[in-house]
Amino acid sequence: MSTGNMNLTLKVWRQKNNKTAGALVDYKVTDISPDMSFLEMFDVLNEQLINKGEEPVVFDHDCREGICGMCSMFINGRPHGPKDLVTTCQLHMRSFKDGDTIVVEPWRAAAFPVVKDLAVDRSAFDRVIAAGGFISVNTGNAQDANSLPIPKMQADAAFEAAACIGCGACVATCKNASAMLFVSAKISQLALLPQGQPERYRRVQSMVAQMDSEGFGNCTNTGACEAECPKGISLENIARMNRDFASAKFISEETV
């Protein structure tokens, strides 16, 4: 139960709101334990700021278990920091060394405007889902769950795509701020399941249209998104979405 002995310099993005400009501000934190999570280190910083009568740093977080997708810090040039396959809240200070300087910025993308300090507005993701990321089935219409067997491999693949937490790291890391990995994960989940077939092509068209209108950039296949995704969402999903999108055009032209 010891407090730790790491001393760190933080350069943290401070920005009052979306109307004012922001800047990096230097802070020092001391006695950091390697067992702390990155956000607990920020708790220490904030307690320090409050005790000095200053305003604490605003950052988004909730579950602190790597599942809600709310935490979103851009740490030393990488979304969610230096470790692969973890979110900011699951990053622990043992990944850093005493004396390190750590730069912490918000997600940066035209479609994710800064709200305050490190918190950004990711509601564009919700609007993309509202455009078609669902199966149109009202409550009470369902048949018995086991009347539709689904091969395990297929169900597992759908589950892997469905594991996306909607954090937006893929967008933040992409030089084009493309949302293809996020959007394709949802499209793949539903395209892989028999329940998703009736709306399969309509879905891809409306979700892609919404994605474009939100101001996300194009995909130029750099693969940075997959490398930074904390949940290991695969680029294969993007390929699947592109195939479906191409087929969708073909199918809708045919039916016109």
Partner: peptide
């Protein structure tokens, strides 16, 4: 029991056995 039916209809990928059943 209705809950499971509803969730599967929505595309919730619950775990399955090799035979394809839940």
């Amino acid at each position: 029991t209705n809950i499971i039916d509803q969730c599967v209809a929505q595309g919730v990928p619950l775990a399955r056995e090799y035979g394809g059943l839940l």
